[in-house]
Design a protein around this nucleic acid. Sequence first.
DNA 1: GCGGTTTGTAAGCAACTGCTTACAACGCTA
DNA 2: TAGCGTTGTAAGCAGTTGCTTACAAACCGC
Lengths: 188, 188
Amino acid sequence: MTEEPQVRKRDAAATKAALLDAAAALFAERGFDRTTVRDIAKVAGANQALLFRYFGSKDALFEEVLARGGREQIATTPPGELLGTALRSMLESDKGRDRTLDAYLRSTGHDSAAAAVRRQLGEEYAKVLATLTDADDADLRADLILAWLLGIGLVREITGKEPLASADPDAVCRLVLGAARTLLERSG
Amino acid sequence: MTEEPQVRKRDAAATKAALLDAAAALFAERGFDRTTVRDIAKVAGANQALLFRYFGSKDALFEEVLARGGREQIATTPPGELLGTALRSMLESDKGRDRTLDAYLRSTGHDSAAAAVRRQLGEEYAKVLATLTDADDADLRADLILAWLLGIGLVREITGKEPLASADPDAVCRLVLGAARTLLERSG
DNA sequence: GCGGTTTGTAAGCAACTGCTTACAACGCTA
DNA sequence: TAGCGTTGTAAGCAGTTGCTTACAAACCGC
């Protein structure tokens, strides 16, 4: 057997990334309050003191997790498809999908600086969604669409309520997009 | 001055009710994890040991809070008006309104037995909402309406995103009920 | 090789958590 | 009034939390 470097040694960037990944996974799974820095460090295979050296605090780490994951989708999706894409990526519970939304939804009890990130993230989504209608209350309608997206995520991932939790993504998309079109098209 | 009994003395029922009220308020304000039994006892003006004597555990107390508040609205509203009423009661941020939904939304990171209460509460709402349509996927459509309600509450109360957070209740109702009608009326 | 910086580690601190226990005060019944 | 279950209180226990500190080991320029 060739000797493989099982343990990452003296690579600050890799350690930081590992901590970020571990934190994202755990925050998504348990929420902010029920995730401990010791758990994050253990999953990342790093010492917990490094978490504070690289991120400053658990709070700051949470902010970075939220900011990193949230902006990804907005940046890589054309406006017209954002609603469908966001909805679909939320519905496809397959492995490997981005779980930032879960972290968001499971940490609603947590105020502090992360609340600002949450709000800003919402702003960015809503801003894009608002371009889809020419009604004079476009921003409000966009907020309602965003609220629907979040609510669907809440019921599916957190509450786990059936039949929505394991409903066919296509069926859900058809229903939601149909109603959303009504909301966006009728001028105010 | 006549002597008033400022301190409640030896009244188990009153003490228990005070604890329940205090818990409901604090859970709604901070969520489950960030509310301590010491705080609840302090707000209720009671000793924290009594909390455990009367409710058994913090978890069980949370369950009672959720169950008590949630069923109230369902029981007192006719099915056809549930959507509008629930929406309106959520939008009217005035004083004294029931804040059980906030407790629900701020405690999404908390699993355990309360998750069952959350789910069951959702079942009851969805069951009523499902009677509003005759589509063969009525349950799914009802779940989507429920999700929208929760999402709107989330964006308004937790995220505080504008313009939805301080939007006119009538305007929101008009938009949501219009789109919801589309969702419920079109048979599948 | 050598000094200094960067990276990783172990141990611990102080505060807080849910919960328990031992006990005092009260009020009803006999 | 004596006895006794109920209600309220003070103190503490054991475990966990975020975060800090003191130190060892690896790396880099010289």
